[in-house]
């Protein structure tokens, strides 16, 4: 049971953005995906999450083929994600932002929802309780009724995490989750990620910060020019001459 990419490719016209990429994200572990700017990380993320059509290859979650599934079907296959540039719902309160994360679990009939029948109301009450528990766990209970648009950067990142967790995923794709955070904030998130992995969740961590990745991941993949140039344990991979060249070429040239 894992999140697997098999020979996944993406072509835009004649331009190859991803070239036969193979990645395996096992459950209960944090797997890293790194690469310099323009290496094609975003293309991979967009293909996994159903925002971009896959040209070739296969993507599966827990044995279920999601290559051509739509974004909402992928969520129902129990793969959740966070966004590189934070995307909260600014008009809604913090609590409401988490409630939408439970959408996958809401089973009452459409008619019951329209008419406000007891079954629908009970379900709403239940997920409010669950959302409040999540807020408690993240120490943000006092902010429940605040408009999400006014939260600090760190809180917005956490809110996005809670929302993704609410869908109870088996796999989570974290797209640069500590961008713009200070060390204290990123350390507390690192703990959280390890805790999630220890409960059996498979995490794919896409990051820029090599130090952060090598601290958390047992296995990392390095992407450059749309193809994988190295994979393995961080200590080994980061000493790979090709990886070093890609990073030096990519960031300092």
């Amino acid at each position: 049971m894992s999140l697997t990419l098999q020979n996944v490719s993406k072509r835009f016209g004649g331009v190859v953005a991803s070239d036969s990429v193979n990645i395996t994200v096992p459950k209960g572990k944090i797997t890293g995906l790194i690469g310099p700017n323009g290496a094609g990380k975003t293309t991979i993320v967009n293909m996994i999450t159903g925002m971009l059509a896959v040209s070739d290859g296969q993507i599966s979650v827990g044995g279920r083929d999601i290559t051509h599934a739509s974004a909402d079907e992928i969520c129902r296959a129990r793969l959740a994600r966070t966004f590189q540039n934070i995307r909260i719902l600014p008009d809604n309160s913090v609590l409401e932002n988490i409630l939408i994360g439970f959408h996958r679990h809401e089973k009452c009939s459409t008619l019951a929802a329209i008419l406000g029948l007891p079954s629908a109301r009970r379900e709403s009450e239940k997920i409010v309780k669950m959302a409040e528990e999540l807020l408690q766990r993240f120490g943000m209970s006092a902010l429940a009724d605040f408009p999400a648009g006014g939260l600090s950067y760190g809180h917005q990142r956490k809110l996005e995490m809670m929302r993704a967790l609410a869908s109870e995923p088996e796999f989570m794709l974290l797209d640069e989750p500590i961008a713009g955070m200070n060390d204290v904030e990123s350390d507390s998130l690192a703990e959280l990620f390890q805790e999630l992995a220890s409960t059996g969740m498979g995490i794919l961590l896409i990051e820029h910060n090599i130090r952060f990745v090598s601290k958390l991941c047992e296995y990392i993949y390095v992407l450059d020019g749309g193809r994988l140039i190295a994979e393995g344990a961080p200590t080994v991979v980061l000493r790979d001459p090709e990886v070093m060249a890609a990073y030096i070429g990519g960031e300092h040239a």
Binding site: A71, D72, L89, L99
Partner: peptide
């Protein structure tokens, strides 16, 4: 709740399983 999410950000709504 789904309407609100879709109106504000379709990508977010879809990523949370909202059709």
């Amino acid at each position: 709740r789904a309407f609100d999410a879709i109106r504000q950000n379709e990508a977010v709504a879809a990523s949370l399983g909202v059709s």
